[in-house]
């Protein structure tokens, strides 16, 4: 019944690859991904779960890695932007973001892509309204969003 303060081993699958990691209970998933696994695609920005720059998918579900204990990922599959492409083949969302000009500074991009991917897994043909609803927690300060929404809608159209 005594709890753990010292590091414990967690088993997880990150971008399709199984790994065992020693993490302290207070370690945040974002820091473990970035500093231990060198997956720097997820960014720390607002640190308050508002902006979405740190978004990663846990068993397909979007979470804010900045406010998520790494130990919670034990036994789960984590997808980061680095795992979105299949080898050299870009995910359709990545392709669409490039073609639509939906990327500017890039700091929000990984979160936007993963959020969109989670949405399309749940709703193959979202309406524009649904896309806007799903992006409520995904901030971009560069693009004005039009091209991001356009890119996501383009992929959704293809899936239709």
């Amino acid at each position: 019944m005594d709890g753990a303060r010292s590091p414990e081993t967690i088993h997880l699958v990150v971008n399709g690859r199984a790994c065992d990691l020693e993490v302290a209970p207070h370690a945040l998933l974002l820091d473990v991904l970035r500093d231990v696994l060198d997956l720097k695609g997820a960014k720390r920005s607002c640190d308050t779960q508002v902006c979405g720059a740190c978004t990663v998918l846990i068993d397909g579900m979007a979470v804010s890695a900045c406010t998520y204990l790494a130990v919670e990922a034990d036994g789960r599959a984590v997808l980061t932007v680095e795992g979105l492409a299949e080898g050299e083949t870009l995910h359709p969302l990545q392709r669409a973001f490039l073609d639509a000009g939906a990327v500017q500074c890039g700091f929000c991009t990984s979160g936007m892509l993963l959020t969109a991917r989670a949405m399309l897994a749940e709703t193959t043909a979202p309406s524009r309204q649904e896309v806007l609803h799903y992006l409520r927690g995904s901030l971009c300060r560069c693009t004005g969003y039009r091209k991001i929404v356009e890119a996501i809608m383009a992929v959704a159209e293809t899936a239709r």
Binding site: Q49, V50, G52, M61, A62, V63, S64, Y134, R136, S138
Partner: peptide, 9 residues
């Protein structure tokens, strides 16, 4: 409520 990430967790 909030956004999808907050709702997920």
């Amino acid at each position: 409520v909030a956004n999808v990430r907050v709702r997920n967790v």
